[in-house]
Design a protein around this nucleic acid. Structure first.
Length: 460
RNA sequence: GGCCCCGUCGUCUAGCGGUUAGGACACCGGCCUUUCACGCCGGCGGCACGGGUUCGAGUCCCGUCGGGGUCACCA
């Protein structure tokens, strides 16, 4: 069996949005699952709209997602010679013809067709004209007029198109520059692409391209057209992968979520990246289109935050802590410990970083939640906090066990219950009425900070 | 409008002629508990509609309706 070679071929006209990201991901997954190659081609022949910034943004986004391409990136704009050569082949084979029709002529014909309630398919006398004219022309492809074009789409099933329904598409502009449906064939053949995996919006291009493959005597690849992602609000639609990265998504979480849009593996929801690669199967991809569910996406990300290796999570969150104004080393022992106390409480890295701030703020700069302060910092409570602070000075080995024993002695001596002091102390230590368990919080904070914060607590 | 594709809880999905139609998110209860989470238990909620085929249809066929894609000298 020949090697599986797939490609992702974005046009660099904007950011890599989720739809494109999923196409790239599915290509990558299929390639890796099959032990094949994942190629990247930048379709930058539309000079008007293509930008270098966009190219860079797409490459960066893919890199972040972990979708590393094999072989050199192919820039379509650098392949015009090959395109022109292929065009020459078509000309020699009489597979294309000169069409002299003007834009006005086409427009009136189109309007007429639409007025009659049909669709416009360009047909003119140029195809059968025998005499050359000294007029501007485009090259049109001589589409078969009879029969049908059939292909077996891996996800969509058998697609049959009547050849009469396929237009004699223009293959090269008046200025001689080749057009998309033509160059995509030339380039896919050049890169020896075995499977074309792309969005379903390309479905109607496929029969045209198949006819071009045949005219050029090139092997026709297999096709797989992915259902589109619907229900994206305009804002979500335009949001690039990097905006999700900035919102605190882990690459593994984002990949997991978007892979499940159209693909599934029994009842399993959470997958590591390697697991998706191992289990991915194009033939089980759904035909129906799906839509984004931000809440579920967050939940999936949360699961990945919970499962992530501690050092990796710490490394990821450092950037977000930086944004909150805290500079912490990725391998800082306190950070590592702090992350462990908080990971179950964050859906995103942004949230995790915010929750972690209190560990790193100066003891006398800790701010208290106003509502909680009014509720818990009663004068009785504050007395108890100071008592606790004093009792804790006697703890030598600063462990959860010893801290817990010390505090229990303290409250036992006063016939109190843990409930009586838990929330006031939490507020004094964390600044909020919610947070990790007290003992673990104290351990991470350290003896000095713990005692300082308990003593510093004040009513308004 | 022509052509093409799709249609299971609100959302993502399992199902591949015989199931009490399963799971997940969200939502609502409860448990756990020093708070908030996490976790656990339970609940709500679905085969778009109408015809066939069949002993039997979410599963097969046709139609209707609904949704989407595409109809460039863009990619």
């Amino acid at each position: 069996m020949s090697e599986v070679r797939v490609r992702f071929a974005p046009s660099p006209t904007g950011v890599l949005h989720l739809g494109g990201a999923r196409t790239a991901l599915f290509n990558y997954l299929y390639a890796k699952n099959q032990g094949g190659k994942f190629l990247l081609r930048i379709e930058d022949t539309d000079r008007e709209r293509s930008t270098d910034e966009s190219t860079k943004a797409i490459i960066d986004a893919m890199k972040w997602m972990g979708l590393h391409h094999d072989e050199e990136i192919v820039f379509q704009s650098k392949r015009v010679d090959a395109h022109l050569e292929a065009l020459n082949t078509l000309i020699k084979k009489n597979a294309v013809y000169k069409c002299y029709c003007t834009a006005e002529e086409r427009n009136t014909a189109r309007e007429k067709a639409e007025a009659e309630g049909g669709s416009y398919i360009h047909r003119c006398d140029c195809r059968d004209a025998t005499n050359e004219k000294e007029l501007p022309f485009v090259w049109r492809f001589r589409m078969p007029k009879e029969g049908e074009t059939v292909f077996d789409d891996i996800v969509q099933g058998t697609i049959v198109t009547q050849n009469l329904e396929i237009e004699d598409l223009v293959v090269a502009r008046q200025d001689g520059s080749p057009l998309y449906n033509f160059v995509v064939v030339v380039d896919d053949a050049f890169q020896r692409v075995s499977h074309v995996i792309r969005g379903k919006d390309h479905l109607t291009n496929t029969p045209k391209q198949i006819q071009i493959y045949k005219a050029l005597d090139l092997p026709v690849p297999r096709f797989a057209h992915l259902p589109l992602i619907l229900g994206l609000s305009k804002r979500l639609r335009s949001a690039g992968v990097e905006s999700y990265r900035d919102q605190g998504y882990l690459a593994s979480g984002l990949n997991n979520y978007i892979s499940r849009l159209g693909w599934s593996y029994g009842d399993q929801e959470i997958f590591t990246f390697d697991e998706i690669i191992e289990k991915f199967d194009l033939t089980t991809v759904n035909r129906s289109e799906g839509s984004l569910d931000l809440q579920k996406m967050e939940w999936v990300n949360q699961q990945h935050i919970q499962n992530a290796e501690g050092r990796l999570l710490a490394k990821e969150v450092v950037v977000f802590l930086e944004r909150e104004g805290f500079s912490v080393a990725a391998d800082d022992a306190k950070l590592l410990a702090a992350v462990e106390t908080m990971r179950a409480r964050a859906k995103t890295l942004v949230e995790l970083a915010r929750n972690l701030k209190f560990y790193f703020v100066a003891d006398d700069a800790l701010e208290y939640d106003e509502k909680a302060r009014e509720k818990f910092f009663t004068s009785v409570a504050l007395d108890r906090l100071r008592g606790m602070a004093e009792a804790l000075t006697s703890v030598d080995e600063w462990s959860e066990e010893n801290i817990s024993a010390c505090i229990n002695d303290f409250i036992g001596a006063q016939s109190l219950k843990l409930k009586d002091v838990a929330q006031p102390s939490r507020l004094a230590l964390v600044g909020r009425a919610a947070g990790p368990g007290l003992w673990e919080t104290m351990v991470v904070l350290g003896k000095t900070s713990t005692i300082a914060r308990l003593s510093l607590a004040e009513a308004i």
